[in-house]
Amino acid sequence: MIDIVRQKISKLLSDGSVKGVVALAMANGHVAPCLFQKEDDLEPLCLGDTKKPGDARYPLNKVLITIARQYPEDVFGVLVRGCDERGLYVLYRLNQLEPDKVMTIGIACPQELAKACECKKPYPDELVAGEKTEGITQQGVQDMEDMDLSKRFSFWKNQFSKCVKCYGCRDICPMCFCRECSLECEDIISKGELPVDIPVFHLTRAMHMTDRCIDCGLCDETCPSGIPLRLLYKKTSKIMNAEFGFTSGINKNEQSPLNLMGPAPEK
């Protein structure tokens, strides 16, 4: 699979259709994001997984945003999985990247990873390498909903109280691009206090993610306290789908119902 990817990148760079490609590289035994700019320099390229599928992923889109802001005229390539591509669609929608300045090199996720993510669509629309696998139904949210109210309450209270307010979830999130963040607004979130305001801190973030979260799961993987943040945001996605028939990033040109005037669309 990696060879196909390498070939593709090499071609894009050689024919000058991109200025560079944001992908992953292996160096000194570690996987890290890398901007490849030369076709003959693609040796360290890797797809991220080392020990098991999905154990070394990065928000490449976020890296891409930083680069694109510096070089607004140039076209860049980016290595994307299903979730990354959904993320790109949202970033187009929110005007953070321009579709004609981005070329994707899409790879499909293995079934094992898709399962672990409960991913609805573990492959990008534009697939370069890998096999499309089945989307997985979302069981985790359902299990949570089946608990009774007081159990849910104590579950989340325990989870949220573990938070050390490191902002890792926000910093890793490819959908978080604001220059000023509500989670640092002193009037909402008190500074220098632990535990964080329950549930204000995490619900504030969840509300901001409702029409954006593309369910990549990086927050979950990043959280040093092991809070199941992904479960929280999966719920927001589920509500958006049930109430407004909207799934963030599934359609390239779809506007969020929260950013449209007028009543909710007919279901």
């Binding site: 849910r152 619900l203 509300m207 719920k235 509500i239 407004f244 119902p257 929260l258 005037m261 007028g262």
Partner: peptide, 29 residues
């Protein structure tokens, strides 16, 4: 509903409230 002084503001609020109320429920409130 369509009588908002600012035309659509209440619809926007309604949508956000829909999400928030279900999130509260999900968190056990």
């Amino acid at each position: 509903m369509s009588e908002c002084n600012y035309l659509y503001g209440n619809y926007c609020a309604e949508k956000r409230v829909t999400v928030l109320s279900q999130m509260l429920d999900f968190c056990g409130i």
